[in-house]
Simulated scan of single mutants.
Amino acid sequence: MDVSVDQSLCQGAAQCVRSAPQIFDQDDDGLVVLLRQPGSPAERAAAHVAAVLCPAGVITSGGPA
């Protein structure tokens, strides 16, 4: 699974950080930062949930494969 983010559209809601803190963080402006690609099945599932929960739709993932 390849996860990507479009920081230019981020609204800073932090749903990604709440659902997958090992994958996402926020910068000093409160915008999403992709820390690393998910590795384990649990991390891939968490990244997929983060993508679904993102109100701005800035996270894309290939699903919880």
Results as ranks from 00 to 15, higher is better:
residue 30 G to L: 04
residue 32 V to E: 03
residue 3 V to H: 02
residue 8 S to A: 08
residue 57 G to M: 01
residue 49 V to A: 09
residue 2 D to I: 15
residue 58 V to I: 08
residue 11 Q to E: 13
residue 38 P to Q: 06
residue 62 G to F: 05
residue 23 I to L: 12
residue 38 P to W: 06
residue 8 S to T: 10
residue 6 D to N: 03
residue 44 R to S: 11
residue 65 A to K: 15
residue 49 V to G: 07
residue 12 G to Y: 03
residue 33 V to D: 11
residue 39 G to Y: 11
residue 20 A to Y: 04
residue 34 L to V: 13
residue 35 L to G: 11
residue 57 G to Q: 01
residue 36 R to V: 05
residue 10 C to K: 00
residue 48 H to F: 14
residue 43 E to S: 05
residue 22 Q to A: 15
residue 49 V to Y: 09
residue 34 L to K: 08
residue 64 P to S: 15
residue 4 S to N: 13
residue 13 A to S: 11
residue 23 I to F: 06
residue 19 S to W: 13
residue 45 A to G: 11
residue 9 L to D: 09
residue 57 G to T: 01
residue 41 P to A: 08
residue 39 G to V: 10
residue 17 V to E: 05
residue 62 G to H: 06
residue 65 A to H: 14
residue 57 G to R: 01
residue 17 V to W: 05
residue 43 E to F: 03
residue 14 A to Q: 11
residue 24 F to G: 05
residue 48 H to V: 13
residue 48 H to C: 14
residue 11 Q to A: 11
residue 57 G to Y: 01
residue 44 R to W: 11
residue 28 D to A: 13
residue 45 A to K: 15
residue 38 P to H: 02
residue 35 L to D: 05
residue 26 Q to E: 15
residue 54 C to M: 01
residue 10 C to M: 02
residue 5 V to R: 00
residue 56 A to R: 00
residue 48 H to I: 10
residue 33 V to E: 14
residue 16 C to T: 02
residue 6 D to Q: 00
residue 59 I to Y: 03
residue 59 I to H: 03
residue 8 S to L: 04
residue 8 S to N: 06
residue 32 V to Q: 01
residue 46 A to W: 08
residue 10 C to W: 00
residue 34 L to D: 07
residue 14 A to T: 07
residue 27 D to S: 10
residue 53 L to P: 01
residue 50 A to S: 08
residue 62 G to D: 09
residue 38 P to R: 04
residue 36 R to Q: 12
residue 14 A to F: 11
residue 2 D to T: 15
residue 13 A to C: 10
residue 4 S to D: 07
residue 34 L to F: 07
residue 59 I to C: 03
residue 45 A to I: 12
residue 64 P to Q: 14
residue 5 V to L: 00
residue 23 I to A: 09
residue 56 A to M: 00
residue 53 L to H: 04
residue 59 I to V: 05
residue 9 L to F: 07
residue 41 P to F: 03
residue 57 G to K: 00
residue 23 I to G: 04
residue 55 P to T: 00
residue 64 P to M: 12
residue 4 S to W: 07
residue 62 G to N: 07
residue 24 F to T: 06
residue 60 T to Y: 04
residue 1 M to K: 15
residue 14 A to W: 08
residue 29 D to P: 04
residue 64 P to L: 14
residue 38 P to M: 03
residue 38 P to L: 03
residue 20 A to C: 11
residue 63 G to D: 05
residue 47 A to V: 12
residue 46 A to V: 12
residue 5 V to I: 07
residue 29 D to K: 12
residue 48 H to D: 15
residue 21 P to D: 09
residue 44 R to F: 13
residue 2 D to P: 14
residue 22 Q to V: 15
residue 36 R to W: 07
